[in-house]
Structure formats: structure tokens, C-alpha cells
Design a protein around this nucleic acid. Structure first.
Lengths: 210, 210
DNA sequence: ACCTGAACACCGTTCAAGT
DNA sequence: ACCTGAACACCGTTCAAGT
């Protein structure tokens, strides 16, 4: 029975805490959210969150888990509509990653920085992170075989391309792009263009492409 | 007269606060340092720091200023000993950047993330940041003219290479490298190798190099 | 001129007590 | 089973008072 008067038992407090933490985080832009403020916004006492999470770090782990799952799903969904050529799928992956980061900057910083939770304390975090990493490795290997990327050792080649996408996204959310005489209103376009500049620049010139 | 008994007037408290803030930051690895702890370690009262900095943010700005100057000096010094070819100087710049980041992880995160101070509130921060950025722009342009990098628009091409170096360094200090099956004891070597993999991969194949 | 230390409004976390 | 609310030990910041 949903009434306007809040009941003594919240009912779905655990999930509400995670959702509200995300809301507060993206709203304020600050990487550190106050557990007390989350509780306040949900109309529960300051001690209530600690019935569901032993610490703020634990709450942030849950937030990071959900964010990482959403990133993975976003990437996998975008790849379903992508062209079959490995090099094109690799570009799609990069664009997908950058777009997710720019649309969810605080969650992106949370999962990337790893300073507000323990990555290894989670069962799901490494799984979903690794899923995206494996996709990257496979696409880079396939693009190399197809001759669209120069041959090179794995995982170093894949790491470099991932770092490129990460660095571009990170420079934007860290507010560094303003110093690079780049149109901030089209940041996403600029970043994707910069990424593709490198990927295209890496294509080996082949004498006779069959 | 330096005595063991601390005098009422510290004398050089302002600079001591900055130095101690750096020490505490790199010691704890936490990006947020406690002003009270810095004061405690220096043997001054909790209110003393606020005679020199109006806020913690202001103290962190001073820390960021010094860190940015040191990064710039490190880069400029390393370039003095570098070979003359633009492409080699560009690699030196990248290696210099990565090395500084890995040896000063907390300062690197501070100046990069920009979440603990106001970048534009400083007179010197933009100057020194821009100095390194300008070096990058010049070297990329020169390497393109020399035919060691494919032609491409500036500043997008330079931004991409900077983002690559930034992303590689950042993945290491964020603790992401452990998931990339990379030998963490040789992280620096691996990162520089990954960077050079891209830079070398970008070299256009020329029919007859004069 | 510079520093002290009590004070204020916060915060994360605990835990007996309430429903 | 789940939540409250007082309590504790912190924190950033202020400011009258001390030297």
C-alpha cells in the first residue's frame, strides 16, 4: 500500500539507497557522496543505511557494480548493431565507451578511479570488467588478422587502444578539454574523431587489397 | 634559533603545509588529505592552516601548482637530453609523462582529476599546463612534417596522443593494470612499450625515404 | 603579524531501544 | 526483521583571545 506517509519499514531500502546514491552523485558531480544525505533524501534515519551496507565503501561497491553492468550492456548492445568488420566494431566499441562515460561522468569516474571501493571485494565487478576487456582483446586480434591493424603483441596493443579511449573520456570528465582549444559543446564528436584518427592512422598500407 | 621546543610562531608554516600535504598524500595514497592531520604532524593547532589558506581547496591548489611545475620541469629537462628527431622527442615526452605519473601517483591524480581545487582560480596552473600542451602540439606538428606521423588536424592529433599517454598512466595509478595480465613489477616498461607501439604503428610507409 | 583552542555544523559508524 | 535516534570520534572552518 503506497501511502504518502512513510512507513516505519521502508521495504526496498537497499535498492533505494543504491539508486539515490547514483542520483546524488550525478547531481552534485562530487565523487564522494554523503551517506547521511542519501538517507535524508529517502526519509530514513542516519543509521538506516548501515542495516544494508556495513560501510559507505560497501555502498559504493554496489553502485560501482551496477554501473559496470550498465557499461557492459551498453557496449554489447551497440555491438549488435555494428558492421561485421573487426576494425569497424573496434571503433564502435570505442565510441560506445566514450559515450557512456560522457553521459554518466560520475559513475565513470567512480568505476575507473577505484578509490571509493574495493574492486576485489566484489564478485561481479571483475567479471563484467573482464567481459569488456575480452571483447577488446578479441576485436584487436581480429583486426590485426584482417590487416586493418599492424601486427603487435597482445595484450599490449589492446591495452594501448583501451587507454586511448579511457584517456580521451577521462580528459573530458576531468575538465581538461577546455585547455585543448576544443569545442566543448561537441566534445563527444571531437573525442570520437580523435580516437578514429589514431585507429585509421594505424591501418597498414596494403599493395593490393583483395 | 632552531630549538627542539617548537616556538609559538612557526615561521615557514605556509610552505611546510604544502610540503606536508604532499607527504601525507603520497604516504596514504588517499586523494583527500585531512587539513587537521597536516596541522597535527607539523605540531600546530587545527586553526593554524587557515591563517595561510582560506580553505582546504586553496591548500590543494597550492599543492597542484607545485606538482604541475615539477611535471613541466621534468618534461623539459628530459627533452634536453633527447635526440633531435621530432618523433623521438615525442616518445621521450610520453615516457617522461608516464614516469612522472608513476613516481608521483597521488600528485598525478590530484592535478589530473581537478576535483579538489579550482583550476581557473590559479594564475600559474594554466600557464604550466599549457607549456606542456604546447610542447606536445609542436612536436606532433613537426613529426607530421617530417613524415613520421600521418597528416591530421591539430589539435585533435595531439590530443589523441596526449590522451593515450594519460590513459596509460591513469590505468596504472587507478590499479586497472592488474586486470590486463600485465607484469605490474615492470609496469613502467609495459606502458612505455604500449605507447611506442602506437606511435611506431602510425609511421606512414614511404616509398623512398630521402 | 601569527598562532591557539574552543566552538559550530557537519560526517561515518555503532548500538540499545523501538515497531 | 528492520528502523530510530542518541552517541562517539572525527572533520573543515571560524574567531576571540593569546604571544
Amino acid at each position: 500500500m503506497p501511502t504518502t506517509k512513510r512507513p516505519y519499514h521502508h521495504g526496498k531500502l537497499r535498492q533505494s539507497l543504491i539508486d539515490m546514491a547514483v542520483t546524488v552523485a550525478e547531481e552534485t558531480g562530487k565523487d564522494i557522496i554523503s551517506v547521511r544525505e542519501v538517507a535524508r533524501r529517502l526519509g530514513v534515519s542516519s543509521g538506516a543505511p548501515f542495516r544494508h551496507f556495513p560501510s559507505r565503501e560497501s555502498l559504493m561497491t554496489a553502485v560501482a557494480e551496477e554501473a559496470t553492468v550498465r557499461l557492459r550492456l551498453r557496449v554489447e548492445r551497440d555491438l549488435m548493431d555494428a558492421p561485421p568488420a573487426p576494425i569497424d566494431r573496434l571503433k564502435t566499441l570505442g565510441r560506445s565507451f566514450i559515450q557512456w562515460a560522457l553521459h554518466n561522468p560520475t559513475q565513470f569516474k567512480l568505476v575507473s578511479s577505484r578509490n571509493l571501493f574495493q574492486f576485489d571485494s566484489s564478485a561481479s565487478l571483475p567479471v563484467h570488467f573482464d567481459a569488456v576487456r575480452q571483447i577488446t582483446l578479441d576485436l584487436v586480434a581480429q583486426a590485426q588478422e584482417a590487416g586493418d591493424l599492424p601486427p603487435g603483441p597482445l595484450p599490449e596493443s589492446a591495452l594501448a587502444l583501451r587507454a586511448l579511449a579511457y584517456g580521451l573520456a577521462r580528459m573530458q570528465v576531468d575538465g581538461q578539454l577546455a585547455q585543448w582549444q576544443v569545442d566543448v559543446t561537441h566534445a563527444e564528436t571531437t573525442l570520437v574523431a580523435s580516437l578514429n584518427l589514431i585507429v585509421d592512422g594505424l591501418r597498414p598500407t596494403r599493395p593490393h587489397p583483395n
